[in-house]
Simulated assay, not measured.
Amino acid sequence: MTNIKKVSELAGVSTATVSRTLKSPDLVTAQTREKVMEAVKRAGYRPNWLASSVKSGKSNSIVVLVPNLVNPFFMRIIEGIEQAAQENGYSVLLGDTQGRAERENEYASMVLTNRADGLIQLDHSFPFSAADAELAAAVPMVSVCERIEGEKKFPVIELDNYAAGRALTHHLISYGHQRFGIIAGQIASQIHHDRLAGIRSVMQEEGLEFDEKMLVGGSYQIETGIQGVQDLLKLPARPTAIICFNDDIAIGALHEIKRQGLRVPQDISLTGFDNIRVSPYMDPPLTTVDQPANDMGRRAVEVLLQLIKRQPLKRSREILPFHLLERGSSGPVPR
């Protein structure tokens, strides 16, 4: 097996620097880290993390709770988590919870029993059981995208969903739209409240009435988009634009709009959220909000490792930037 000396020779640094890079990468420069990691790949070096974990009492693994592994947006976040974890010598244990509390409790308990060093939560629920709640207060845990309900002590990496909701609404109003349908995701989540508040605020500023009947949905699935369009088109005055709270919903909505003999955007403009990989290749390409999902995942690991090492955080809430991507699914209000 290739040893650490070979890695140091390839990287042109000392064995101590190689060791420091692998164990505490935040203590070396980005240039040194890049050289060492490239040398590790070239040399085929496999650090003995098991031996170091026995000495330190750490498992060198983290648990990531995912409400739905099929969701392509979550996979982009996990990609960033995996990259950052591997660079820092950590393994990632994925828990596909399907939004079920008992599954969350089971996976979360791995941190309490030292089978994992920390936890990343991608849903809005508190993942520990009531019996473990007191112990969980000291657990290194970070939430991504969602804020954990009723919990302010755990760091969160998120998007400015309020501003993104405003941006989408301004975009559609600029095309003359005044009747908006909204197909939402999980109504109990903070994301829902923030995006909806952003939409409402712009409509109020523009003197437009928000029709509660135009708010439908309740999950982040393609089928939600199909049902949502069916519900919206039954209304006496159909919307001229539909805002979907993720791209999966928008894909279902696009399918149903076409099935009913209508055109996008000539009859109904449509927007999504997330910028999943297929959104530019839809017919028409989907106007959506791009979230820096990979960066979210990487940053979540960096913050979690600070908690694991008991290092102080500069802030408990980090808001990452978004980009509104205008494509062919949105256009002028029909005359």
Rank of each mutant, 00 (worst) to 15 (best):
A253C: 06
A253D: 07
A253I: 05
L254C: 07
L254V: 03
L254K: 00
L254H: 00
L254R: 01
L254Y: 01
H255C: 07
H255M: 10
E256W: 07
E256N: 05
E256C: 07
I257H: 07
I257F: 11
I257M: 03
I257R: 04
I257W: 04
K258P: 00
K258V: 09
K258A: 11
K258M: 08
R259Y: 04
Q260D: 04
Q260A: 12
G261N: 03
G261I: 12
G261Q: 14
L262D: 11
L262Q: 05
L262A: 11
R263K: 12
R263I: 10
V264P: 06
P265N: 14
P265M: 15
Q266R: 13
Q266H: 08
Q266E: 15
Q266I: 01
Q266S: 13
D267P: 09
D267H: 09
D267W: 07
I268L: 12
I268H: 06
I268V: 12
I268Q: 03
S269R: 13
S269G: 10
S269T: 12
L270N: 12
L270R: 07
L270V: 09
L270Y: 07
T271R: 05
T271M: 02
G272K: 00
G272R: 00
G272W: 00
F273S: 01
D274N: 15
D274E: 06
D274H: 01
D274M: 00
D274T: 06
N275M: 08
N275H: 13
N275I: 06
N275A: 15
N275R: 10
N275E: 13
N275D: 15
N275V: 09
R277N: 12
R277Y: 10
V278R: 03
V278T: 12
V278C: 12
V278D: 03
S279E: 03
P280C: 06
P280N: 11
P280W: 06
P280Y: 12
P280A: 09
P280T: 10
Y281F: 15
Y281K: 08
Y281C: 05
Y281Q: 14
Y281R: 07
M282W: 00
D283F: 05
D283L: 10
D283W: 11
D283G: 04
P284A: 11
P284D: 02
P284E: 03
P284T: 08
P285T: 02
P285K: 02
P285S: 15
L286P: 01
L286Y: 01
L286F: 01
L286R: 02
T287K: 09
T287L: 08
T287Y: 05
T287G: 10
T287P: 05
